[in-house]
Design a binder for these strands. Structure first.
Lengths: 219, 219
DNA sequence: AATTGTTTAAAACATTCGTTTATTCCACGC
DNA sequence: GCGTGGAATAAACGAATGTTTTAAACAATT
């Protein structure tokens, strides 16, 4: 049990702490003491703190990447060259995102980490993710392009990230928001509730009219 | 020139560095050396690094709060009890946000800072902002309620935060996103461009049809 | 011009960080 | 059995951090 136990213990503890406080604000000493492993274990097993951060992401993104590619394969087979509708693409993305961490019961952590990847400095992380998972995003992006031919190239890019922001912000701040919502409206929301509420908003956002003077792009 | 110069020199330098790297990743030594003031000056004039962070925010949020209250006063006077339309409220909010840092020629910095306030740990910052500027948000929130009576209470709450997520995520991850956008589309976007693109998306999101089975709430 | 209070300057202080080293432990194969 | 190699441990290292201290320079007031 030796190695496996220590490595996963570190990863389990690190991902929670990273999600709670960010990367720079989480020291290796905090991680190792909470995980009840030796301080040097991180550098021994992972090499450095940077490598640990990347490993935390890989544990989520590797299964996600595989499953999502598989799901897109199925879709492309089914639609046989026809453009896949935007709703179907978003639905598939949402389902895959929900499936992956469901096994680990930590959707919230996964979302927080995704948010941090965009927000925190950590240039190495962006490079790592881009390098390892850029093709998944590219593939999805291409399919969305075919589903929304009326959108100018740049506009689609930005709207995709707008919607990404909506989802990540909401789900990563879920606890805080849920506290407020519970207190003010006495109505408890589940993650599934939230996603049900998110769907029409995201679709409407993607299909919103073009900004007033986007002429230079729209040609 | 003595005090004023040193204090504003520190603030000017700090806000740029904070916006670029975040709070924890920016050391006082980096700030003071770049600002060409003594290291101890920060602790002398502000008391601590935390207080410096708060001071950086206050320099933006104090004028913003004042202007926004004034703008809402004008609106309420003009609409004389009638509900103020949602588009007008959002427009006013956006205009005020744009006006404040325009004088200091640093809209991007202001936006990044707003994003960091939500994103970074810094519990003291959230408490400070809540305490000093919470009433502005409450007032705006009430006006939005009157502008969207058709929305169930909880639905409006969530959508407001969806849209907040869109804006904050986009603006706080601006550099990262801009890097990608520059590389892929060779088109440089300004913050003003982004806000122009954001508007129709936010409006459409707020006015999206209700989710399929929100019946229990809609009554 | 002397004095007072304020600001700047240089240095040191006490922590904390990531990383490395040296040692011990322990399981496994010969 | 023993030795060997991978893994855990304890300790220390060097660098960087926020903060404090002490002294000097300065401005303003009387």
């Amino acid at each position: 049990m030796a190695q496996t136990d220590t490595v996963t213990r570190i990863l389990d503890t690190a991902e929670v702490l990273f999600a709670e406080r960010g990367f720079a604000e989480t020291s290796l000493r905090t991680i190792t003491s909470k995980a009840k492993v030796n301080l040097a274990a991180v550098n021994y097993h992972f090499g450095s703190k940077k490598a640990l951060i990347q490993a935390v992401f890989a544990r989520y993104l590797d299964p996600f990447s595989e499953r999502f590619h598989q799901a897109l394969d199925d879709l492309e087979l089914h639609y046989r060259g026809e453009p896949i509708p935007l709703e179907v693409l978003l639905e598939t993305l949402a389902r895959t995102v929900l499936e992956v961490p469901a096994e680990r019961n930590s959707l919230k952590v996964f979302m927080r980490l995704l948010g941090l990847a965009y927000t925190q400095a950590q240039g190495h992380l962006r490079r790592y993710i881009q390098e390892h998972y850029g093709n998944v995003f590219s593939r999805f992006s291409d399919l969305v392009r075919r589903a929304t031919p009326e959108l100018p190239e740049a506009e689609r890019f930005w709207r995709l990230h707008f919607m990404l922001g909506t989802v990540i912000f909401t789900l990563s701040g879920l606890d805080a928001l849920r506290d407020i919502a519970d207190k003010d409206y006495h109505e408890h929301v589940s993650v599934r509730d939230l996603i049900r509420r998110l769907r029409p908003v995201v679709v409407a956002g993607m299909q919103a009219p073009l900004p007033d003077d986007a002429l230079k792009v729209a040609g």
